[in-house]
Design a protein around this nucleic acid. Sequence first.
DNA 1: CATATTAATCGCAATAATACGATTAAAAGT
DNA 2: ACTTTTAATCGTATTATTGCGATTAATATG
Lengths: 110, 110
Amino acid sequence: MGLTKTEIFTETQNELAQIAKLFAHPARIAILQHLIAVNACICGDLVDEIGLAQPTISQHLKELRKMGLIKGEVDGTRVCYCIDKIQWKNRVDAFKAFLDQDLNLGQECC
Amino acid sequence: MGLTKTEIFTETQNELAQIAKLFAHPARIAILQHLIAVNACICGDLVDEIGLAQPTISQHLKELRKMGLIKGEVDGTRVCYCIDKIQWKNRVDAFKAFLDQDLNLGQECC
DNA sequence: CATATTAATCGCAATAATACGATTAAAAGT
DNA sequence: ACTTTTAATCGTATTATTGCGATTAATATG
């Protein structure tokens, strides 16, 4: 086995896990932090900034783009990447709703 | 290769990724949702509720506990699990701080 | 004390994710 | 046209994760 049993979980559970997966690698955190800091940059800047090989950065960018967190605009031989702010808000709000659940803070558990 | 290069990232980046990893599997989302819903329950309840084998649930519980999101209290042959509310708040607040970063919503990117 | 209950751990098989060299593709510059 | 620049893709090696059967450990019960 080793295969996640997607079919036994709710759609929400699978979606939350998929969003979380994007944040579950320091390289993608670093990419997002840099994009937020400089507003927009090209792939090569991220390679220099982060210190992973170009194909590796490209692969992480692909995943972030696949889930809609970022977008890339071709400009000659370069591709300019930035946060997709609308999609970011959608995804992140869904995730924050989960994190913000009421924990019955008064009640003791075990 | 295939090894995440932890050493090239900041402590914050690695920590955020580690927290996110906990939420990056639907089984762990389901476990946390159930614990939040019923306040506390034993391992066997989660096995029945979620439909994965007992060793699999036990493994997920171990990871959640390792990072401090939940705690387990032995009670005879059973172990009662619940959200560790203090730790949950610590971890989740750190993560929300990242998600809530200012995106310069007015500014256009590319 | 024998047995049942409950959960952890071991060991393994299978899939997923990470990383990068080599190559390709596409546009820009000379 | 040739070369350079830039990023995507391919192929592959390696590590990580997931899942579970079998077993173990620990307590409870008859």
